[in-house]
Amino acid sequence: MQRVNMIMAESPGLITICLLGYLLSAECTVFLDHENANKILNRPKRYNSGKLEEFVQGNLERECMEEKCSFEEAREVFENTERTTEFWKQYVDGDQCESNPCLNGGSCKDDINSYECWCPFGFEGKNCELDVTCNIKNGRCEQFCKNSADNKVVCSCTEGYRLAENQKSCEPAVPFPCGRVSVSQTSKLTRAETVFPDVDYVNSTEAETILDNITQSTQSFNDFTRVVGGEDAKPGQFPWQVVLNGKVDAFCGGSIVNEKWIVTAAHCVETGVKITVVAGEHNIEETEHTEQKRNVIRIIPHHNYNAAINKYNHDIALLELDEPLVLNSYVTPICIADKEYTNIFLKFGSGYVSGWGRVFHKGRSALVLQYLRVPLVDRATCLRSTKFTIYNNMFCAGFHEGGRDSCQGDSGGPHVTEVEGTSFLTGIISWGEECAMKGKYGIYTKVSRYVNWIKEKTKLT
């Protein structure tokens, strides 16, 4: 034993070699072989497995989906700052455009905790909710729209109204504003409101030439003092309507412009014939205590009207009353817009006519005020429907199939267009061939041609 100890002390290297040989010859039971080890760690190889990531292109799944990435790591994937920024906006807080917040056709661009709407022409605001041009839906104005110097929408209202708090709607500024039905039992019968379409306001006024200088022999019209197929109006439903009495009662109609003036057809009036105007009328054979009678003290036909040349060209006249009318729910003026808007309103496509005229061709006159909704007829169809001249200051309205029309005794009465609950004068009943005849239409004086003249002559002093 002493000898062994001496050998170990003198030859430590020998001992180490012996131990190493023993270990190498022993069977290893701690580690699995290569094949079995792979069965336990069965993990798919990654895209760049075996390579240094710093030297390969980034992978979106590896960089940002398996674990949260930084902007720089995302930049490695896209290799483009702009594309990385677009991805980053949604990656950080989701897609803010998912709810489609942009209105009126706006395009949404996502941002971090926010979004941006790219608005089409005519709109602005956070969600493109603000109209900035009158060309689109009248700028959301209830009545009139004008573009300011910086191309912003400025709404306005006709006389007797003021802008509401929203700067879009119009509200009454006087007790009985024009064009409004205020009798409670008839307010439910107000005709369907007309909503502004998209309009090209630059070209809204037709490029028409008034044929002022045409000389033409007097034409022989049949029954051209021209509501057939209409309905009984309720008291106060058309408070701007008046009836004219002269040699015979209810020979023509008219509309209240203001307390002192009536507008009617020029062919209705004769110099030297006494005319009485009755406002607030409903049943011409009954006294309903809503009527107001006034005498006409002055007749002003349009300066281009000449019955000797043509009885229905420039067929418009103004009547001055001896005493002002007292405005109330049964006696209310009709609204008159400017030339541009009167023309736009007419193009809405349908209007209402009213009167006490004959209820059928050569038949009896109506006792109760009649009204009828009539569609506008395109000019080409209008011209083809008659052998008589249709001037540019006239328009056609009615039904091709016949059966409904204005008729004798309705002449001078109103053709009105309702705009968001307020009625505007767009025409004056003038003439036609018979009444409600198939293929024939009622012919009306186009008020847009005469609004400046009306307003100039009827100013209240």
Rank of each mutant, 00 (worst) to 15 (best):
I284R: 13
E129V: 02
E171H: 06
D212E: 13
A173L: 11
R226G: 13
F395H: 01
E76M: 13
L189K: 12
E434D: 15
R226V: 08
E231R: 13
H415T: 00
S114V: 04
L383D: 06
E124K: 02
F176I: 09
S354E: 02
G246F: 05
S187N: 05
C145V: 02
R180C: 03
E66V: 05
V331Y: 00
A337H: 00
A26H: 03
R83D: 09
F348W: 11
V227P: 10
F348T: 15
T264F: 02
N42Y: 08
I256V: 06
R180L: 06
L367D: 12
G439F: 03
A337S: 03
T209M: 14
I112A: 15
C28R: 03
G427E: 01
G351R: 02
F251H: 12
G179H: 00
L319K: 00
N203D: 06
C335Q: 01
F424P: 01
E79F: 08
Q216N: 07
L321S: 01
T445W: 02
V296P: 03
T215G: 09
E286C: 06
N283W: 08
A307Y: 09
D232N: 14
C435T: 03
N36L: 07
G50C: 04
P44H: 07
I429V: 09
F424S: 01
F251T: 07
T381R: 11
E433N: 14
E53L: 05
I344W: 08
L319S: 00
C268K: 00
F71G: 15
W118H: 01
L23I: 12
N313K: 11
N59W: 06
R449W: 09
G355Y: 14
N100G: 04
E270M: 08
M437K: 11
G229W: 14
S107L: 06
N313Q: 13
T458D: 00
K311G: 05
M8T: 14
T29N: 15
P175I: 06
V257D: 00
I262Y: 00
K440Y: 07
K234F: 13
E82G: 13
D378N: 10
C69D: 05
F196K: 13
G363H: 13
Q237H: 08
G427I: 00
P301Y: 10
R226M: 12
S350V: 11
A317V: 03
L41W: 10
L244D: 00
E165W: 08
F424Q: 00
N258M: 02
W88F: 14
K459Y: 08
G13R: 06
C155M: 01
E286W: 08
Q185G: 15
G122S: 04
I7L: 10
G409S: 12
V4M: 13
N127T: 06
F399T: 13
I429D: 07
C157A: 00
V273K: 14
H303N: 08
R162D: 08
I309H: 11
E165Y: 09
G280V: 02
C18P: 02
G402D: 10
E159C: 03
C435M: 03
T264L: 02
R140M: 09
T381K: 06
D322L: 02
T445P: 00
G94H: 12
I284C: 04
Y330C: 03
A250C: 08
C407G: 04
T276P: 02
C141S: 00
K311Y: 05
S70M: 08
T186M: 14
S411Y: 14
V153Y: 08
T85Y: 06
V359R: 14
